[in-house]
Design a protein around this nucleic acid. Structure first.
Lengths: 201, 201
DNA sequence: ATATTTACTTACCAATCGGTACATTAATTA
DNA sequence: TAATTAATGTACCGATTGGTAAGTAAATAT
């Protein structure tokens, strides 16, 4: 609708593509975290100068939040698909397998942006830290809901503690993310997933 | 031997206690990570001004490394004890239980200093990031060696993949660390440990 | 008492941080 | 062609970063 061609907007046309620039920002934040990514490197990777970035995306915090949304709806979109798998076991298996594939992929940064974006930080980044905590909590919450459904369907035993199971899977996922940044390979982590799934009820 | 009282050193006596100051630095780095802890807050928490810190501990990187050693031989010393437990199962159980107790304690920062000290960072902190990766790798390596021993003692099955088991336990530990910083309680995480141990071979 | 040694305090350094004022360029509209 | 609009490039802002030079204070040795 409001594409550049149709709109014929008045002033000087932007020299950047909004989506491409945000993708670059996402990659930078993904790799080096919120505090570890300076406006200077954002300028370079996005191919924009600072005033253009601020005009297009707001300040650094706003840019990070938009990059985070792009991460959730892009590389991390498989999470929503995984919880739609027919059984709890398949949910866990698909979720962890696809997570390992993403977090150890060669063409993208290692590890999960939501885990390492601002795990620990200085006082001026606490809002972002809290936002990421919220994202992780929602992830865990959606797992719990899916397990509640499985329990109602007798896919999980009646006495299953769904909150604990959800936290267990979240812990595996977050541990995998730490391992991926530390250089663990896809095969290393897939072997661990095998152990986890072998133990799954 | 070289205590202040016995030595009768020449010049002006230090106004700080070396060990106490390092303890304070450790707590600050533990809570906010390497990059998130500025020299300004280190000055305040250590009760020393900058030149005294540099004279006593070297630059920020050297100070962090010394704080890290203090963390390993202090709060995190239980790891060495845990791997001395008589069976692999007890090793894992004691290790994870004590980890949860430490990482969710009220009087100390949440989470593990070795995990969140510099999980992602800017280019000027990559040495520290690498050092922490090394520490985590050594932790995992000592677990593998312990499992190798258990395998030799028929405490673990002959076909057990000890490297994978070690990575599995390391992943649980690192996931717990992420959870602890995000506000998970001791009870939350102990329940997960119960699940892990119930699944343990 | 003087010299020496050591640590402290103050003040400063260049570099970088996130963020912005201002003038310029390139497009459309009149 | 002149006016308007929007995005650009440059140059700057105060604050903070890690790190240090230089002078002062407090102890011991001569």
């Amino acid at each position: 609708m409001n594409s550049a061609q149709n709109a014929k907007r008045r002033g000087r046309p932007p020299a950047f593509n909004h989506d491409d620039a945000l993708e670059k920002a996402m990659q930078a934040f993904w790799e080096h975290g919120y505090e570890g990514t300076s406006m200077a490197v954002l300028m370079e990777t996005m191919g924009m100068n600072k005033p253009s970035i601020y005009a297009a995306f707001g300040n650094k915090e706003a840019l990070f939040r938009k990059a985070l949304q792009k991460y959730v709806s892009g590389p991390s979109a498989f999470v929503k698909d995984a919880v739609s798998e027919p059984t709890a076991r398949q949910v866990v298996s698909v979720l962890l397998t696809k997570a390992v594939e993403l977090l150890t992929a060669q063409n993208t940064p290692r590890g999960c942006m939501i885990v390492q974006g601002a795990l620990s930080c200085g006082p001026e980044s606490e809002h972002i830290q809290q936002e990421l905590i919220c994202y992780r909590s929602n992830f865990e919450g959606s797992l719990k809901e899916r397990f509640d459904l499985a329990k109602a369907n007798s896919d999980l035993p009646k006495d299953a503690n769904t909150a604990t199971l959800a936290k267990y899977v979240a812990i595996i996922h977050q541990g995998i993310s730490v391992q991926a940044t530390s250089g663990a390979t896809k095969n290393d982590l897939m072997a661990v997933i095998d152990v986890v799934m072998k133990n799954w009820q």
